[in-house]
Design a protein around this nucleic acid. Structure first.
Lengths: 324, 324
DNA sequence: ATGAAAGCGCTAACAA
DNA sequence: TTGTTAGCGCTTTCAT
């Protein structure tokens, strides 16, 4: 392994000088600088980031904790997080908590040990890992956690838009299908807002929830089957994710219920599947790209010691497609 | 920040002793050990992984370079890579090369600088980053790169199975739709094997390729539109991924072509979408979980200095569903 | 404009 | 069984 010392010796200077040209700090003669660059090139030298982290007490690494990475929305979010991190000279260390509170806590500690400069935390555990008493900048996604700033999409507006759209399309018997409300996520607000808006129009909303260990395709479909078994009259469904919406549509079609003629379905997220599905799925779009960009920006501010709002809410919009 | 020194002082021992109990190395009295544990607890101490990496010249980090992370197959692969890495006390640093050769090279250098112990490389660039002359263990996925061991699913078998299945289902006019063959990926073999098996049955195969910057939903659909515009008679399509298969089915349905009555479609991967789509998509299953598990295992062997086969091929299987 | 030297937090000989 | 000490590769203060 080539070190600064090797470069220094070959260039006939000291490590201090090499360090200076690498970090572009202090005065260095053009001649020396060029010589050092040349030798670094010849030796294919790359500074050891570990040693540098130790000396500078800064790793330039962001930890990202997700409840699940194979979910289209989260993988898209992750992709953008990586992109924006990279643009800002940060690397991403990935943690997949799988909705396990213990694993989540372990991951937080692991990231702390790893000296990451900040953490993006999408916590989906019951036993809220609220004992998060870390001195590290942490940004929480879609969840309020005591003492931490958080970011989320405008779930309230999303629920409202979904209700208004279904009403406009003439739906009378409404249902909501989503993840467990017990998880106390901010996204639960989608349901409450939906229900409230429906109530204003004099309608009630049947509520169906997945079990805790959500994000499971089979479970979505099973749930959809149950919905139709007991409630043949439902003609408007708001699903809390496009994945669930797709499962609903699939099961409806199998039950000879036409979408959108007899049943209107609206999802949430606007993942690629929504446009790929047949019929294309109407949805409430929350932009993973915007969330990621804003999140990285907020984390960098926190890392720089600046203050940020405790709460950041990003817009959503209705994307009308074929399923309503 | 709490350091070993703090723990040592409070426990009335030296850092060596603390290090020993942490690493469970050498002789230590029960009494001392307990005292140290207790103090570590009180101080909420966690060893600094950066310092440890520097001293041990081992980071316990695996680099993962993917061409795209929001693609269902890759995100699933990533999820499992993280899981198996974690089980073996390794962390994952994520890199999203976005099919850009320059970015890919930069990432390799970055990971080297970061002192990762090994790299999982899924390279999808034209200008093959073959100048990969790194002394680090690198496992290549789905691509032969000079000097590197590689892992892939049995693409040859996959193509063969797809052809045989379509033939059995009575298809006569075959087509293949996939990513650009120019990329020189091992997955191209799916096409060659498919074509060969069709030829044995006296059939030719129309070949449609995406442009280089693949993994794009709109492009898939556009391509499918073109296929049907020019070739109304096609009755059997092998798509090189389930995502492409879904796009094909959707466009077919819009063109009033019934799947599977008039057109049989088979995909590849067996991502969740395949079972969620309507009709459910017949596919060649390559297990992301198996690939990830085997990959981590191989990388750990390489890191341990053991020899591994230059070539590791994992089984695929036909999953019959509704689209054929 | 450049160098010497201390220190980041930890591990690992070598001593005792 | 425990301590002393010298690094790991880099940054940074203080000299020169």
């Amino acid at each position: 392994m080539t070190t600064q010392k090797d470069v220094a010796e070959k260039a006939g200077v000291t490590v201090t000088t090499v360090s200076r040209v690498i970090n572009d700090r202090g005065y260095i003669s053009e001649k020396t600088r060029n010589k050092v660059y040349q030798v670094m090139d010849e030796l294919n030298y790359r500074p050891n980031a570990v040693a540098r982290s130790l000396a500078k007490k800064k790793s330039n690494i962001l930890g990202v904790i997700l409840p699940v990475v194979h979910h289209p929305f989260f993988s898209s979010l992750l992709s953008y997080l990586e992109e924006y991190a990279y643009q800002n000279d940060y690397k991403v260390m990935l943690c997949n908590s799988q909705m396990n509170a213990k694993k989540e806590k372990e991951y937080i500690n692991m990231l702390r040990a790893q000296q990451v400069d900040g953490i993006f935390l999408a916590s989906h555990t019951l036993d809220i890992a609220a004992e998060i008493k870390v001195d590290l900048p942490i940004l929480s996604f879609d969840r309020k956690i005591e003492g931490l700033p958080y970011i989320c999409s405008d779930n309230d507006q999303g629920g409202k838009l979904a209700a208004e759209h279904l009403l406009e399309q003439g739906a009378k018997k409404l249902a909501y299908i989503g993840g467990s409300l017990k998880l106390n996520l901010l996204s639960n607000q989608r349901y409450y807002a939906f229900k409230e808006r429906a109530a204003e129009a004099g309608l009630t909303v049947k509520n169906f929830q997945c079990q805790l260990d959500s994000f499971n395709r089979d479970q979505y479909q099973q749930l959809a089957v149950n919905v139709f078994k007991k409630n043949k009259a439902i003609d408007g469904i708001f699903a809390s994710s496009d994945l669930i919406a797709a499962a609903v549509i699939k099961v409806a079609q199998k039950s000879m219920i036409n979408v959108p003629e007899n049943l209107k379905v609206i999802g949430y997220d606007d993942i690629e599947l929504a446009q790929l599905y047949s019929p294309e799925i109407t949805t409430i779009r929350q932009s993973a790209e915007n969330i990621a960009q804003k999140s990285v920006q907020l984390l960098l501010k926190l890392i720089a010691g600046e203050n940020i709002d405790r709460r950041t809410v990003l817009n959503v919009e209705l994307i009308k497609r074929e399923s309503t």
